[in-house]
């Protein structure tokens, strides 16, 4: 641990390993991002991409980069950041390594919102809005049902799992009501995809990130105190219930808006915080590294989906396979270590 102090009694604590992991993640993300923008029917070298990004490209290059490829990349980055951060917040809130929006029902709620629009027919904007609404309403319902003199980890998990089961049923029903023509649209959305994303898809989530990332990060020290138990945290001066409500609301918003932008990309929210903890070797809450790793996972997964596999798979297929595989591996190693 490094401590930086100013004569004015200010002091900041830095963990070298966390800094290093963050820096490596950022560099990798930028590198993969440049390659991603260069990839497509009109291939561009990284030098061309950088030249175009700094304003030195031809009109055609300018159009391809800023209107076709950058929105997809930025949407992916935003979704990954949002899911990584929200996943870390959920895991810390419910004190359970499986606490992720996929398990707690928020994702299913967003899917319900989206499927309703697909079933009755509506624009992409309506679909995105309805998905966001579905996620937020589900979050609100879970919160109201789980509330009993504050929200506690296990109640939240159990209520969330119940809600997720109900909504899975509802979604199955909606799928049967979807016109055959729209069924593939619904399936593609449910898998989570970045195909054809424009700036209008990214902007709502970007705005939310600008507000919520600093807000959630500011809660991190208090969140760390709740690892000691609610009573001990209160004794240390944390307003536990208020903090939990704020964090829950922020994380639900991030999940809902990222579902609106790219569909329910699976397992990123579950995997990113675990990777962050392992890489930083920091016990407990690691919000910022989880956000950075989430962004990196999505960008890499999208490139794998586009290049390594035939037939341009949606990104959700790759994160699902990687995330599921990682989870199984995690359970296997934890069991061997005798912890599970």
């Amino acid at each position: 641990m490094i401590v930086i102090r100013t004569p004015g009694r200010l002091s900041v604590r830095l963990h070298p390993r966390v800094l290093a992991v963050g820096a490596v993640c950022l560099l990798l993300t930028v590198g993969v991002g440049v390659l991603a923008v260069g990839h497509g029917e009109y291939p561009m070298s990284p030098a061309d991409v950088l030249r175009t990004l700094t304003g030195g490209g031809s009109a055609a290059e300018e159009f391809i980069v800023t209107q076709l490829r950058l929105p997809r990349l930025v949407t992916g980055l935003a979704v990954g950041t949002a899911l990584g951060l929200a996943g870390a917040v959920f895991q810390a809130l419910v004190r359970n390594p499986l606490g992720s929006p996929d398990v707690l029902g928020f994702t299913q709620g967003a899917a319900t919102g989206a499927l309703v629009v697909v079933a009755v027919g509506g624009s992409s904007a309506a679909l995105a809005g309805s998905a966001a609404l579905g996620g937020v309403v589900t979050g609100l319902l879970i919160y109201l049902i789980a509330w009993r003199r504050g929200v506690h980890g296990y109640r939240l998990v159990l209520v969330g799992i119940g809600m997720s089961a109900i909504l899975t049923g509802v979604n199955g029903y909606l799928m049967t009501r979807v016109p055959l023509m729209s069924a593939s649209r619904a399936m593609l959305w449910l898998t989570g995809s970045l195909d054809g994303r424009g700036w209008s898809d990214a902007v709502p989530l970007l705005v939310a990130l600008v507000v919520l990332v600093p807000a959630l990060l500011a809660c991190a020290p208090a969140l760390r105190m709740t690892e000691l138990g609610d009573d001990a945290a209160s004794g240390l001066g944390v307003s536990v219930h208020r903090m939990r409500m704020l964090l829950l609301a922020g994380a639900v918003l991030l999940v809902a808006l990222s579902a609106a932008a790219a569909g329910p990309v699976p397992f990123v929210a579950l995997t990113a915080p675990h990777l962050a903890r392992r890489l930083t070797r920091a016990p407990g809450v690691t919000l910022l590294p989880a956000a950075l790793i989430g962004a990196l996972i999505i960008v890499v997964a999208d490139q794998v989906a586009l290049r390594a596999l035939p037939g341009q798979l949606p990104v959700g297929v790759v994160t699902g396979v990687i995330g599921g595989g990682y989870l199984v591996w995690l359970l296997a190693t934890e069991r061997r270590a005798g912890r599970l």
Binding site: G229, A232, P283
Partner: peptide, 14 residues
């Protein structure tokens, strides 16, 4: 006012 509750939790690996 400080408080030591009955069963505080030590986070893993602290």
């Amino acid at each position: 006012l400080g408080l030591l509750p009955q069963s505080p939790i030590a986070p893993d690996g602290i």
